[in-house]
């Protein structure tokens, strides 16, 4: 489903990614681990067209990211859900409205929104917070709203960039469990994190990245550093 081929990316003169080769199969759950500055976020940004690569190529299904037109990016982004460490919810909107926001953008009708949003909130276990504002929720709950929003377009791929970075252990575990559940329902998940203990519990494929290069690949392996 995703194919990185000899991907190299520079920021000005700084080489952030160096000759990355990676194949992600449909339905996989991949943990991308490495210290801060290793290049994890850069890999995810290339996938949504936020940054352009300098050498090599990236294929998502049969879409060539080096050839995609700017005007087609929004439609690609609707197939890819994205979650960040800093959550990015709209503070003046309720959980329901934050999720609805994503659906409004793509021209869904009110009826569709009213039908789908409660289902998605139920999936992330936040039915009881439907009409609460972000400041009335815990960090973990907020992150689950963000995940709910990223699911609004029923994406085939979910990118999670340090989604547990600001969360305590219990909340972090909840978020990881939710990602695993979403993966079980059929969505391919790419989780970028520097938290080793979390990854060890997941028991899925782990890719270790250091200084812009993949240094280790393990099926259900352990992350050690």
């Amino acid at each position: 489903m995703i194919e990185f081929k000899k991907v190299t990316k520079y920021y000005n003169n700084h080489k952030a990614l160096n000759n990355i080769n990676l194949h992600v199969k449909q339905g996989e759950f991949i943990s991308l681990v490495g210290m801060s500055g290793a290049g994890k976020s850069t890999m995810l940004k290339l996938l949504v067209g936020e940054e352009q690569l300098d050498d090599g190529s990236i294929l998502i299904d049969d879409i060539d990211m080096t050839k995609i037109r700017k005007s087609d990016l929004p439609y690609l982004r609707r197939k890819i859900g994205v979650v960040f460490q800093d959550i990015k919810l709209l503070p003046k909107r309720t959980a329901f409205e934050n999720v609805a926001f994503a659906m409004e953008v793509s021209g869904h009708t009110k009826e569709q929104i009213n039908k789908d949003v409660p289902r998605i909130l139920e999936l992330v276990g936040l039915t009881h917070k439907t009409h609460n504002f972000p400041h009335e929720m815990s960090g973990g709950e907020k992150q689950r709203v963000a995940i709910a929003r990223s699911l609004a377009h029923r994406p085939v791929l979910l990118l999670a960039d340090e989604p547990t970075g600001n969360l305590d252990e219990i909340n972090a575990a909840e978020v990881i469990d939710l990602l695993l559940k979403i993966n079980e329902l059929g969505t391919t998940v790419l989780l970028a994190t520097h938290a080793s203990d979390l990854v060890n519990k997941i028991k899925k494929r782990v890719i270790t990245i250091e200084g812009g290069q993949i240094t280790m690949e393990q099926e259900k392996g352990k992350y050690k550093l």
């Binding site: 005007s71 929004p74 982004r77 609707r78 990015k88 709209l90 953008v105 793509s106 990223s150």
Partner: peptide, 16 residues
Amino acid sequence: REEVEIMRLVGATNWY
């Protein structure tokens, strides 16, 4: 700016 960033994130088109 926050709204715009999220819009881009969830696949809003340019003209939207």
